[in-house]
Design a protein around this nucleic acid. Structure first.
Length: 419
RNA sequence: GUGAGAGUAGUUCAAUGGUAGAGCCCCGGCUUGUGGUGCCGGUUGUUGCGGGUUCAAAUCCCGUCUCUCACCCCA
């Protein structure tokens, strides 16, 4: 029979890599909860309309990367490609807008994009993020960015670069858009195929194009910063001031735009200087989305958030930040009669909260110790017939090979001393 | 979606048209009482799949699938 494989671009995360995953997941929860963020879990499936309206129908994500299908009842559904749209949907659906318009939420879970897989890019990947909903003040931007950077650094990843830009808000965008269209229209025949399409639908994205001809045209393209309205300018300057004050180094990247349409004003990206990511450089990205709530049918609610890919983070994370496991105690019996005693000792130690492995068969002591070694046990408890006569067991330190005989009822106390 | 490379044991790889192999891993043993180094032994394969050429194909040809990398975009 043909052996089955996981779907293209979708991977098993095997037990051996869990120390890294847990370090990221638990480290993240711990940190954002310290900032007052609470977890929200939303469904993996949403009405496709949510992403079309939220992320934007001219984005690559919606245009060509969605896992969208019609279910048996004829509903048009999609596997979520990112987390923000769902969070805002939940925000509106459960009346937070009325009840408690300011929300600090975080999430963690699988996202789906049907792209060609490459290093650091998968069709099912795990993303975590945070959303600060309903706060317009620059201090919100600074908090989110600071939190993101603190988190990345807490994993021992460094040095990192924080790239910052402003796309402007409602007073800026129409003017800037017009200026861009004017600029690029003069050289329309030199634009690549994608960009001539973008000229109509999303001229901002041309700035981000990597094609030689388009890049040349972008060199003397108008800069957002010359078009920022007064409020947008002030907001951006204040965010920068707060970051400086908080000691978060950043660099302004005037041509940076992001691939999701909902961003307004502040956008940012954290890059790790590591070759482990292949062509990918960004480990975390985010920005302000002041129009999204309104676009999804709510009142205008300024908000900001970020998200990061767990797989990518793990690729650049040093092994030293992997979550440490509690010491393992292996209980070995010697001889058939001792198996019962070994099981008894194991049961007791487990009830006392220790991590314990025990042999299930009365194999030779040698092979049991081999197993203990393979499992990475810190200690072995040898329950042999000799010791049994004295109500004891041998406690062996697997690191240095030293061993002592102790009474069974003293085992736990001795283990405590030794750790 | 476009381009490139690669598919042989769990894994890393050898075998260039003539009997599919090695290291590592795994399992067992080396007086049923001592792991890590050592020694002995053992398991593991429709050579990704399908077709073609040939007396003979892992090897040459065609197709297909998968993986990897890059472009695009993003996490």
């Amino acid at each position: 029979m043909k052996t089955l494989r996981s779907v293209k671009g979708m991977h098993d995360v095997l037990p051996r890599s869990m120390p890294a995953w847990h370090a990221v997941e638990e480290g993240y929860r711990e940190l954002v909860e310290r900032f007052g963020y609470q977890e929200i879990r939303t469904p993996l499936l949403e009405p496709i309309e949510l992403f079309v309206r939220g992320i934007g129908d001219s984005t690559d994500i919606v245009e060509k990367e969605m896992y969208a299908f019609e279910d048996k009842g004829g509903d048009h559904l999609a596997l979520r490609p990112e987390g923000t749209a769902s969070a805002i949907r939940a925000y509106l659906q459960h009346g937070f807008q009325v009840e408690s318009p300011q929300c600090k939420w975080y999430y963690l879970g699988p996202m789906f994009r049907r792209e060609r897989p490459a290093k650091g890019r998968y069709r099912q990947f795990y993303q975590a993020g945070a959303e600060l909903i309903g706060v317009a003040a620059p201090a919100a931007d600074a908090e989110i960015i600071d939190m993101a950077v603190q988190f990345i650094e807490s994993l021992g990843i460094g040095p990192v670069r924080v790239l910052l830009n402003s796309l402007g808000g409602e007073q800026t965008r129409p003017l800037y858009r017009k200026a861009l269209v004017e600029h690029y229209s003069k050289h329309e025949q030199k634009l690549c195929e994608d960009c001539s399409r973008r000229l109509e639908r999303n001229p901002l994205r041309i700035l981000d194009c990597k094609v030689e001809g388009c890049r040349a045209l972008s060199v003397d393209a108008p800069s957002v910063h010359d078009y920022l309205g007064e409020d947008d300018r002030e907001h951006f300057d204040e965010v920068r001031r707060l970051l400086d004050k908080g000691g978060t180094p950043h660099q302004v990247e005037p041509t940076m735009v992001r691939g999701l349409d909902y961003y307004t004003r502040t956008i940012f990206e954290v890059q790790a200087e590591s070759s482990a990511l292949g062509a990918q450089t960004s480990v975390l990205g985010g920005g302000r989305y002041d129009n999204l709530v309104k676009q999804l049918g709510g009142r205008a609610t300024p908000s900001i958030g970020f998200s990061f890919g767990i797989e990518r983070l793990i690729m650049v994370m040093p092994e030293s930040t992997h979550k440490e496991q509690v010491p393992l105690v292996f209980v070995a019996g010697v001889g058939k009669q001792s198996l019962d005693r070994a099981l008894d000792i194991a049961r007791t130690l487990r009830r006392q909260g220790r991590r314990v492995e025990v042999a299930h068969t009365g194999a030779s002591l040698r092979s049991q110790l081999k197993k203990a070694d393979k499992l990475g046990a810190a200690f072995a408890v040898i329950a042999g017939e000799e010791e049994a006569k004295r109500g004891g067991a041998t406690l062996r330190n697997m690191t240095d090979g030293q061993q002592i005989e102790v009474r069974v009822d003293e085992l736990s106390a001795r283990l405590e001393e030794l750790r």
